[in-house]
Write a protein that binds this DNA or RNA. Structure first.
Length: 177
DNA sequence: CCCTGATTCGC
DNA sequence: GCGAATCAGG
C-alpha cells in the first residue's frame, strides 16, 4: 500500500491520540505495525513517552474487571449434610449414595460462567479475542464480547457453546439446582 | 506467550 | 523511502 497524504494524516492523528502501532496498522489496513513504526520515524514524529511503551491497555484493564471463574465446593457441602444425620446406620448409607449421584449430575452444568463483555470495537479485535457481537449494529453502543478466546478460536468458550449448539439443546448449559 | 516501540539494512 | 527482521523491554 502507498503512503498517500490522506493515510499519512490519519497516521499522524492516530499516533498523536496514543494508539499503538499495531492498532494504527489495523485501521489503515494493508500495512504492518512495523511499517507504521518505520513511517513514524521517517516523519520524525515524537516517540512514545518513557520507553517500554505500556500505557493502560485494554488487556490490563480487562484483567482487573474480569473475575476468574470459581467453582463452588460441592463436595464439602454434601459431606456436611451427611455427617449431621449420623444416627440410623442403615438409613444413612442410602442417603449418601443418593447425594453422590446428584453431585455428579449438576457439577458440570454449574461450571458454565457467563463472561463479562470487554465491549471492544471492531478495530480492537485480535486473533484471540471473542468476536461475538453484542447489541444493535446500527446503534453506537454496539460492540463485541472481546473476552479471551482459547487457541485463536473466533469465540470465547461461552459464546462458542452458543454459536455451535442448537437452540433446543441449550437447556444443558443452564445451571440447574 | 502476549504485547510494546526502536533500530538496522537490503531492497 | 520502505518495511521485514531483529532487538529490547513490560
Amino acid at each position: 500500500m502507498n503512503w498517500t497524504d490522506e493515510r499519512v494524516e490519519k497516521l499522524k492523528r492516530l499516533w498523536s491520540e496514543g494508539l499503538s502501532a499495531s492498532q494504527i496498522a489495523a485501521q489503515l489496513g494493508g500495512v504492518s505495525r512495523n511499517a507504521v513504526i518505520g513511517k513514524v520515524h521517517r516523519l520524525s514524529l515524537p516517540g512514545r513517552a518513557k520507553a517500554g511503551g505500556t500505557v493502560a491497555t485494554n488487556r490490563s484493564a480487562a484483567k482487573r474487571t474480569t473475575s476468574a471463574p470459581r467453582a463452588p465446593n460441592y463436595a464439602s457441602r454434601v459431606a456436611t449434610r451427611t455427617v449431621a444425620r449420623a444416627v440410623g446406620a442403615t438409613v444413612m448409607k442410602e442417603e449418601v449414595e443418593i447425594e453422590h449421584f446428584e453431585e455428579m449430575e449438576y457439577v458440570p452444568a454449574a461450571n458454565v460462567v457467563v463472561p463479562i463483555s470487554r465491549r471492544l470495537a471492531l478495530t480492537e479485535l485480535t486473533e484471540r479475542t471473542c468476536k461475538w457481537p453484542v447489541g444493535d449494529p446500527l446503534k453506537d453502543d454496539f460492540h463485541f464480547c472481546g473476552c479471551e478466546s482459547p487457541d485463536s478460536s473466533p469465540y470465547c468458550s461461552y459464546h462458542a457453546r452458543l454459536a455451535y449448539q442448537p437452540v433446543h439443546d441449550r437447556r444443558r448449559t443452564t445451571v440447574r439446582v
